[in-house]
Write a protein that binds this DNA or RNA. Structure first.
Length: 585
DNA sequence: CTTTCTCTAAAGTGCACTGTGGCCAGTGC
């Protein structure tokens, strides 16, 4: 046997993270700020680079990438060819790894972390918490009572979110495990349940229900999956594990006859199930995770159930899609036969809010358009950042007009997709827009979004956004509430007032499909629909892969009871053309 | 550390906000 010398390819994201980590360490060492920025820029340049880094390194051409000079090219070349970077490893040895947790606490940056470390020896979140509780932080120069209180709250918030994951984070793990279970010869039926199946924007754990005649074999195979870190419980019917990323996953093993009941039960929500069981009881039956049976002797015999829909049918209900099972009126609607026919992924015909390398996207216009064609979209809109979003390399009016020109040129060459030239225009603090009207008038549509000054009062923020909506060039509002799930709360906003204004001005509201956003939140869409406000599902894609986020957007729209009639981008091209008052081709 | 120029030296996204400490510094977008 010969030894293998082949080195596994280092993912581009890992390289980018290493550079960002170096920047962080240099910050802690109070290095030359421009050196720090050079590493930050390089991390970004690598992230945005779409070519094959390894072959560029082998050709010695790394310094041709914008933002990579002689020194960085050398270090990256070492990393790409040997798998190690000496500089990085030496630097890393100077710090305990826990200290980097402190950067995750909002309000703490390198300067403050350095003070905490040098004066109180704080090098981890747990030490920081202790110091806050003993009042030591408030005594420090540059800190005070308020900072101490804010830090403690941030630590508490962090702890609360520790066992919560975004739908988009958990979905690949859930799907990998479902596929693994389905591939086993011993499994009959497999279903992922719980909040993941209900497509909640945040999930706490993963639940799988499997029917089988050989539960021990299935459990063995489940715990042997490479994603599994450790087994915390192992019984005949239930196995619980912790996956490598930290999330708990439960596997329930049942007979095939029990399967529909287990799936219905473990899909929840708890509130939905309580209501459903109450309904069974009214018919003299008892419903649990194993069966539907007469409650006592003499009660009528329930029908034989083969699948989940059968349970609902037995209770005189239409089938209720998992996304709707939140006990918010779905049972009454199922009884009356008025459940909406929910939008499906296949109904989407195009998208409007997408970026390119011209602002902060990772792929070029051509690459993004190719990806959109592959997804089968009939139309595709580009909306890069406007000039005030300089941190996202926002476009000056001049650059924007150049981009419009290149979009029109590419559009003329393609006959299987229609391209639209738009912009994601910043709503400035006073509600005015980032370009004059004569510039906006030259675009096919405008996505108006807030990217700065999040701390306005509710009244001021509401007035700001309404003012933007009143500009006739504004077609839709992007990521209305500014939340980043598990990272940042929404800003203060009077949403009913915004919905009223949207109805009055005919402004569409985006359902931003990025799994960190999924806003406007699904809980508001029925109120929007009542007012006749239209939804537009946008991926806010910064890369070709990002386009696939529309799937999460459709999940959220389904949770919001939306049908294809409620979502503008389910319309065919001809109707979009009329709605946007575009010249006929 | 990189880029660009005034080509071996200088400049390098800019503003709002917050809290603290006395009119500034650090953080975050």
């Amino acid at each position: 046997m010969c030894e293998t010398t082949q080195m596994p390819e280092i993912p581009r994201d890992t390289i980018s993270e290493i550079l960002a980590h170096i920047a962080q360490m240099l910050e802690l060492k109070s290095e030359n700020p421009f050196k720090i920025r050079a590493y930050t820029n390089a991390a970004r340049a690598i992230e945005l680079y779409s070519g094959d880094l390894k072959s560029v390194a082998e050709a010695g051409k790394l310094d041709a990438i914008d933002g990579i000079g002689k020194a960085l090219a050398e270090k990256l070349s070492e990393l790409l060819t040997t798998g190690r970077m000496t500089y990085y490893e030496t630097l890393k040895d100077e710090f305990v790894p826990e200290i980097f947790q402190l950067f995750e606490i909002p309000g703490l940056g390198a300067k403050k972390i350095r003070v905490l470390h040098d004066t109180l020896g704080i090098n981890s979140v747990s030490r920081l918490e202790r110091a806050c509780k003993t009042g030591k932080i408030a005594e420090l120069e540059g800190f005070g009572e308020k900072t101490q209180k804010k830090l403690l709250e941030a630590i508490e918030h962090r702890r609360k979110n520790q066992d919560r994951y975004c739908l988009g984070t958990a979905a690949p793990w859930a799907e990998a495990l479902v596929e693994h279970l389905r591939d086993l010869p011993e499994t009959t039926r497999v279903q992922a349940c719980g909040s993941y199946r209900r497509r909640k924007e945040i999930v706490g754990d993963l639940d799988f229900v499997v029917s089988t005649r050989k539960p021990a074999a299935v459990a063995d195979a489940f715990v042997a999956h490479p994603l599994v870190e450790k087994v915390i419980a192992r019984g005949d019917t239930k196995t619980s594990v912790i996956l490598k990323p930290g999330i708990q996953a439960d596997l329930r093993l049942v007979s095939d006859a029990e399967f529909p009941f287990a799936v219905q039960y473990f899909t929840g929500s708890k509130e939905h199930n309580v209501a459903i069981r109450g309904r069974a009881r009214e018919k003299g039956w008892t419903l649990n995770e194993y069966r539907l049976a007469p409650e006592k002797e003499g009660a009528p015999t329930p029908p034989v159930i083969h699948d989940e829909a059968g349970i609902y049918r037995a209770l005189d209900l239409e089938y209720i899609e998992p996304e709707l099972r939140e006990n918010s009126g779905e049972i009454a609607a199922a009884e009356a036969g008025t459940l909406p026919r929910l939008i499906e992924w296949e109904n989407l015909r195009g998208v409007f809010h997408n970026h390119t390398t011209t602002s902060d996207g990772r792929h070029t216009l051509e690459e993004m358009v190719d990806a959109a064609r592959e997804l089968g979209f009939a139309y595709y809109g580009v909306a890069d950042h406007s000039k005030s979003s300089f941190q996202a390399n926002g476009l000056s009016a001049e650059r924007l007009m150049e981009q419009v020109k290149s979009i029109r040129e590419l559009d003329a060459k393609l006959d299987d997709i229609e391209l639209l030239a738009g912009v994601e225009c910043d709503i400035l603090k006073d509600g005015s827009l980032d370009y004059p009207d004569e510039i906006l008038a030259q675009l096919d549509y405008v996505v108006a979004s807030v990217h700065s000054v999040f701390s306005l009062s509710e009244a001021d923020m509401t007035a700001r956004i309404i003012k933007a909506m009143e500009n006739p060039h504004v077609t839709m509002l992007g990521h209305l509430t500014g939340r980043l799930l598990l990272i940042r709360e929404s800003y203060a906003l009077d949403i009913p007032a915004i919905l009223d204004a949207a109805a009055r001005t005919g402004t569409w509201i985006e359902l931003n499909a990025n799994p960190r956003r999924l806003e406007l939140d699904w809980r508001w869409w029925r109120a929007a629909k009542e007012r006749g406000v239209k939804c537009v599902i946008n991926p806010d894609a910064h890369s070709t892969e990002g386009l696939q986020d529309v799937w999460y957007g459709v999940c959220a729209a389904r949770k919001g009871w939306l049908t294809k009639q409620d979502v503008v981008n389910c319309l065919p091209w001809k109707e979009i053309q009329q709605l946007l008052k575009l010249p006929a081709c």
